[in-house]
Amino acid sequence: MSIGNSPEDDRPSIEDDRPSIGRVLQEARIAAGLTLDKVSASTRVRVPIVESIEQDDFSRCGGDVYARGHIRTIARAVSLDPDPLVAQYDADHGGRPAPTPAAPLFEAERIRPERGRPNWTAAMVAAIVAVIGFVGFTLFNGGDEGSKDNRVAEGPAPDRKPSPTTTTRPAEPKPDPSDSAIAAVPKDKVTVKLSVLDDKSWISAKSHNGKLLFDGTLLKGESKTFQDDERVDLILGNAGAIELYVNGKKVEDVFETGQVERLSYTKGDPEVG
């Protein structure tokens, strides 16, 4: 019987020889001739966070979701494939975490008052009736004026004072573009459309049951549309660069550049979500 470690215990572990995520990102950055400031400017990740990640300290990222997003963004900035690094992060931190419903997070951070849903159908019917009534009234008055002019032409022209002013009929109301957009989307589903107007943004979208619909970065000019039967949960990494339509209606919230937003929308207007 031997005393001490067995030969199997002395064999080096393969995992121990693998370089850490921070070391790989740091060496790639140095090889590309980039400074921390340049990486921060291109990724919009603050310098202290980039520096902490290169030291394998992910505590400043704010959670696994943001850590994975920062690793992807920085890896692309230094010309690395992000998938192996994200897989290594998941392996080092107990695997990919179970999806967390975004609705409670959104309700905690962005509580909005309940608003009554406008009856768009009734409003459109009322507008159509008003337009038809206006057109009928215009045609009726026009016919009367024409017949009066004909009778005057047949007899002696009476003395008339010139009309002091000319009445200008108001232009027919034009429908709001958002009305047609709302009518085009399915009423029994939640429809969310994202368009990146400036720079780029990291997007995460999930359905009401936690299914991941999209997780990645959209560049300037790109857009994505998501639908679900009940709810769509969003995390926007750079919300200020995004134009957002929910159920055919533009969300008027003003997001700041670099701001992270957690949003959740259901059927109806954006305010209902």
Rank of each mutant, 00 (worst) to 15 (best):
S2T: 12
I3F: 14
E15N: 09
D16W: 05
S20H: 03
S20M: 07
I21R: 01
R29N: 06
R29K: 10
R29H: 06
I30S: 11
G33S: 06
G33I: 08
T35P: 01
L36G: 04
V47W: 02
G63F: 00
A67L: 04
A67I: 03
T73I: 06
A77C: 13
V78G: 01
D81F: 05
D81M: 07
D83L: 09
L85A: 01
V86W: 02
R96P: 05
R96D: 12
A98I: 11
T100W: 05
T100M: 12
A103C: 06
A103D: 06
L105P: 02
R110C: 12
I111A: 12
R112L: 08
R117T: 14
P118Y: 03
A123Q: 14
A123E: 13
V125C: 11
V125N: 09
V129E: 15
N150F: 13
N150A: 14
G155R: 11
A157R: 09
A157T: 14
D176Q: 08
D179H: 08
S180N: 10
D188T: 13
K189R: 12
V192S: 03
K193G: 10
D198A: 05
K200M: 06
I203T: 04
K211H: 08
L212I: 14
T217L: 11
T225D: 07
L234I: 11
E243M: 14
E243Y: 07
Y245N: 11
V251W: 04
E252F: 05
F255N: 03
L263F: 02
Y265I: 03
D269I: 06
D269E: 11
V272A: 12
